[in-house]
Design a protein around this nucleic acid. Structure first.
Lengths: 153, 153
DNA sequence: CATATACCCATTGACGCCCATATAATCCCA
DNA sequence: TGGGATTATATGGGCGTCAATGGGTATATG
């Protein structure tokens, strides 16, 4: 499985370390298995994360923009300067920077939610609520849900 | 990681020295790890910096502009004639030239913003404001943001 | 000679690496 | 197939190393 799936709740120890769920670690390419990137979610109060490979693709796209345009600066500021790289230790743990923990309201426990090509880290209760809200919204639109699930390509 | 990412705020000591963030130093090629180039940002009141290798890339970008346009002269004058090379000492510190500090309004602290293939140095508060403004502009253009972030492949 | 800059050394706190344990999952063989 | 043995995962803690910072002294440069 090369996608981030499922949900896990892990503890944050005194030093601020938290285990990246084992199944998430296995999604990372063997080459860069000891490094991930974290950033504030744009739409939710959670932290999002993924492997560095995804960042390199984004870098490539930004680099193709007009170098002297305002957009170029905006993208590179909003993306590169807000991204934080974190190292994963031999036990599979990493540190969530203080600023990001604050943004997501995370204190002693972190809830990891697989999102396919990336994952989200929530304060457990907020994450739970988000799941419920999101499911409720989805049920209101069964039609479009069916469309996605039955789509042939 | 071979890109300048994240944000760091470092102090400038009495002698005017400031540490280049460790993760930024690691982006520089092992060969020229003790030298960077600095110049005034064209579009913002910040100082931009990068490894010496990046110069060639900048030259190429400018070369792609219309040779007879005003922009060509302006960019090439503004950038090339104003570039300053600076040495990094054994502790990873360097001096920001007085003129550049003045240009960016930097006094006692320097905020380093990763920008992918280069970085910016801001007076912390101005840098903070720039980040917010830039993010605001981008959110107005959700479409283009999605274009950059969406992974297809 | 005066100022600026490079080199050396010291301090502090954060982080990485190592080792240890408990619990859970998996395996393996009688 | 059952149950003990092995392995993996999550978690806790000690300790050495490194990054950021401060300061003294030598060296250079005009």
């Amino acid at each position: 499985m090369d996608l981030f799936v499922s949900k896990y709740i892990n503890k944050i120890d005194k030093k601020g370390r938290v285990s990246l769920p084992s199944s998430f670690r296995n999604v990372l390419p063997k080459a860069n298995r000891n490094e991930i990137i974290l950033y504030k979610s744009i739409k939710t109060s959670s932290v999002e994360g993924c492997g560095v490979g995804r960042l390199k693709e984004i870098a490539k796209r930004i680099n193709n923009l007009d170098f002297f345009s305002e957009d170029y600066d905006d993208f590179s500021t909003s993306i590169f300067s807000e991204i934080i790289t974190t190292n994963i230790d031999k036990e599979g743990r990493f540190l969530i920077p203080e600023e990001l923990k604050l943004y997501a309201g995370i204190k002693t426990e972190a809830a990891f939610f697989g999102q396919g090509h990336y994952f989200q880290i929530w304060e457990p209760k907020k994450g739970q609520k988000n799941t419920e809200d999101s499911r409720r919204r989805l049920l209101k639109e069964k039609k479009s849900l069916r469309m996605i699930l039955t789509q042939k390509k």
